[in-house]
């Protein structure tokens, strides 16, 4: 898990942001939303999306719920908690300062 901290950090940010725009979504929809809104540049891997979702759920940022689909199968949907909203703010400002810093470095050179 420690292998790609930066990537994971940004994955958390993306998931939280998607869920803040459109609450109550299942995992596939979140993945699709990340792909669509980034113009197919960013892709969340299934293998890392679900562990991340479960980890954030354990941390209390998001809340999960089972609902019945029209097909009769159950699916698990997620929404932000208040702690998640706070966390989104933290992640966003961290991303802002990070990208600002990186841009500054690029300009200097």
């Amino acid at each position: 898990m420690a292998r790609n901290d930066a990537l994971q950090g940004s994955l958390d940010l993306l998931v939280l942001k998607i869920l803040s725009r459109r609450p109550r979504q299942h995992g596939y929809a979140i993945m699709a939303a990340i792909a669509n809104t980034s113009g197919d540049v960013l892709r969340a891997e299934e293998g890392s999306l679900y562990p991340a979702l479960h980890r954030m759920e354990e941390a209390g940022w998001i809340r999960a719920e089972w609902i019945k689909k029209d097909t009769g199968r159950r699916t698990r949907i997620y929404e932000l908690t208040s702690a998640g909203k706070k966390q989104l703010g933290v992640e966003e400002s961290r991303w802002q300062s990070l990208s600002l810093a990186i841009n500054r470095v690029l300009r200097e050179v």
Partner: peptide
């Protein structure tokens, strides 16, 4: 079981789309 079920439902969504 729950984790398994969630992954299955993901694959179904993917196939449906």
């Amino acid at each position: 079981r729950e984790i398994e079920e969630e992954l299955q439902s993901h694959i179904e969504e993917a196939v449906a789309s």
